[in-house]
Design a protein around this nucleic acid. Structure first.
Lengths: 191, 191, 191, 191
DNA sequence: CTATAATCGAGACGGTACGTCACGTCTTTGC
DNA sequence: GCAAAGACGTGACGTACCGTCTCGATTATAG
């Protein structure tokens, strides 16, 4: 119904900025449309005019921040070392409160809204996973190994521990995980 | 504050039953404390007296059912087969729309509420993971393998795929996962 | 806090109408804010936005009706007769069960809430008393008589008997009261 | 139903004491049965066993405090002076916060409960009014004056001003009131 | 001098109304 | 015709009391 040409770009940006700020401050659950509008100096209706509601705004706010980082893994020749670097970086992200809060919010979105979940998966997650997949392929993993599964074998336990807090999520965990997965995919101390 | 000795067991059961029934009918999001109370023929205050709110009741309702099931894995002598059975069952649970939606919603709550997270982890999840851990230990896994890590290597990818819908979550996936993990933990066709 | 300019006049009127209707049907004690809102087709919040609660709405509902009546006493030239008419009318109001119950309830609130008391006094009562005062002044009452006291000499006993039910509250009582007060303020059969 | 012989006198007294204390502290409206029971160290059921509810307890608490004072007016020979003394005393009662709160609570009772109103009227009020009536009769008031009306002419305006706060309630008011009433009942400087 | 029955303090129970909060829509006023 | 502002109907929230009911523990008669 509304005409996108006449849309106010300042309002749009102010709303997304306010959303990010409030996400970090209060978390997703305590976030309200009214609070976003107030913080952005916008009317509540402006949000409902251009987005479907809280979840759509949050998704929009997060996607264009997180996306579009260089999505190829470095190849040092040592696969085990490269994977360690990636997983250690992921652990570090989870340890950072702001980044963790953001991922948390994003995950909630993914859980609650099937339609938006696809976007998150394809625009944010897939590039990262595919980069690791490419590195695995280049690392000489036997062809009979399902690379999608292998990638999830790396990240799945990490997410699991982060989500469910089943134990400490530190570099040792990342390293141990890499070692196990290297064995699983047939490594004999090469890479 | 309230005295657990004087608690009315009938009310407790009626509330948990009503919660399960309404979860199946309306889903978690549209579930309200008032509706639970009405369905259970209980007062709303009775729910707030014994639980913290909707999420706590739902957790209790789920734990209540899961707890009834014996929390030791069958030991057929064939570790690989037993693990396949467990993971296939988990996949089946995730395939059930009601159970899946409930777990999804509870996971969202978990992200916002640390206390709830601990409860979910310890009462809902840990027993299941520990049962698998016990089966691994009995299965002759080499002592240098970190069993906690091994268990998360089994369930982490499953949760990852379920949460982020990165691909089909079916029995083939479960089987492939078991095979990889068996290799990771040094299986040589025994168990 | 809210802006009176943006107030919805339809809601205001519907709420006051509903209040009067429910007062007549159920009485003051069984009146609830929720019932008023439901009957008026309004939101409960709308009532709390503009009034302090049940008592304030009831007060407004009553003022609204009383204010419509012209607040000057007829001057027939015969002061005694005019006063009789006023007091007889007051007695009649007290005889009406609905009006009587409402005034009774409002008086109870008045005893507990100083702000409400001031409102009742100034908006509901004072206009009536002042009208009588004006009539007394026009009727040639000697200047040394305190008119405020004179007015209360008329209405005080009426309220007393109504409140405390010390005896029949009928037209004879009103007439006898007027006669006594006429004597008190120095009447010699004029006016 | 309950057996009055087995009634615990300590509980009874503690409840009535607590009621009086809370009346003075919080007023009638904010008084709750639970608070009375808690303050009295009694169970809530004990109150419901022996009284009908809040109003019945309050009545009971007040009646046996206020009642049974010497209920005859002094006769100095000067009727005007004696009436002044009575009305000034009443004004003083209304000025005392505790006594005023008590009367306030009692008045609320009178307003809200028809059945109990009669008891209040007959056991508390009537003796006082009758005492004044007797003094008027002894003071040589002309026989054609309705003494009930005359008494209410004295106390009605006082209650009116107290209830509705239409002006200052002080000794001057009491004196002016007595003067007017003396005129009304035909006084020519005697008594 | 028991026993046995009612009262007691305590407090959980099914309810009902409260006053608040956020929702998503609608209305007003000014660019 | 979009925007800021904010009132509106709706409905869930969590709290406070209500009056009833269920507990042992404590009297206080009646056998």
């Amino acid at each position: 119904m509304p005409d996108p040409n006449r849309r106010n770009e300042n309002s749009r940006r102010a709303i997304l900025d306010a959303t990010r700020a409030l996400l970090a401050e209060t978390g997703y659950a305590d976030l309200t449309v009214g609070a976003i509008a107030a913080r952005a100096g916008a009317g509540r209706q402006t949000i409902y005019r251009w987005w479907g509601g809280k979840s759509a705004v949050v998704l929009d706010a997060l996607v264009d921040t997180v996306a579009a980082e260089g999505m190829t893994l470095p190849d040092s020749g040592d696969l085990r070392a490269d994977l360690r670097a990636v997983l250690r970086a992921t652990v570090a992200e989870f340890a950072d409160p702001v980044l963790s809060a953001t991922t948390r919010a994003l995950t909630i979105e993914t859980l609650a809204d099937d339609d938006l979940a696809a976007q998150v998966r394809d625009r944010l997650l897939r590039p990262q996973l595919d980069a690791v997949k490419d590195r695995l392929r280049a690392g000489g993993v036997p062809p009979e190994v399902d690379l999608d599964l292998a990638v999830e074998l790396l990240f799945g336990p990490l997410y699991h521990r982060w989500l469910l807090r089943t134990g400490p999520l530190d570099q040792d965990y990342a390293d141990g995980l890499v070692d196990l997965v290297m064995t699983a995919i047939g490594d004999r101390r090469s890479g």
